Amino acid sequence: MPFPELAGNDAYALLDVRPTATGEEIRRAHRDLIKENHPDRFTDPERQAEAAARTRLLNAARQVLITRRIEYDASRPAPPPPWWRRPRGQGGPRKNGRIALFSVLGWGALALLVTLLLRPSNEPVTVPASMIGSWGGTVTHLHAPMSFGRFRTYQESWSAELTLRRDGGRVSYLDGSCSGTAAPLALSGGTLVLKAEVTRESEECDLGDARLRPRDDGDLSVEFRGRNGMPPAEGVLRRR
Rank of each mutant, 00 (worst) to 15 (best):
P2G: 12
F3S: 07
A11W: 05
Y12H: 06
L14D: 14
L15D: 01
L15C: 10
D16M: 10
V17T: 07
P19T: 09
R28K: 10
K35Y: 11
H38V: 00
P39K: 06
T43I: 04
A49P: 11
A49N: 02
E50Y: 14
E50P: 09
T55E: 15
T55C: 12
N59P: 02
R62I: 00
Q63D: 15
R69H: 05
D73H: 00
S75Q: 11
A78L: 08
P79F: 07
P80S: 06
W84G: 03
P87Y: 03
N96V: 08
S103A: 13
L105I: 03
A111G: 15
V114K: 05
L118S: 13
P124K: 09
V125H: 06
V127H: 14
S130C: 13
G133I: 12
S134E: 15
W135I: 00
G137W: 04
T138Q: 12
V139T: 05
L142K: 03
G149Q: 09
F151N: 11
F151G: 07
R152K: 14
T153K: 06
S157W: 04
L162I: 03
T163P: 03
R165F: 07
D167S: 15
V171Y: 05
D175R: 06
S177L: 10
C178P: 04
S179M: 06
T181G: 02
G189V: 04
G190M: 05
T191G: 02
L192F: 04
R200C: 04
L207I: 08
L212W: 06
G218W: 04
D219T: 15
S221R: 11
S221K: 09
S221E: 15
F224I: 04
R225E: 03
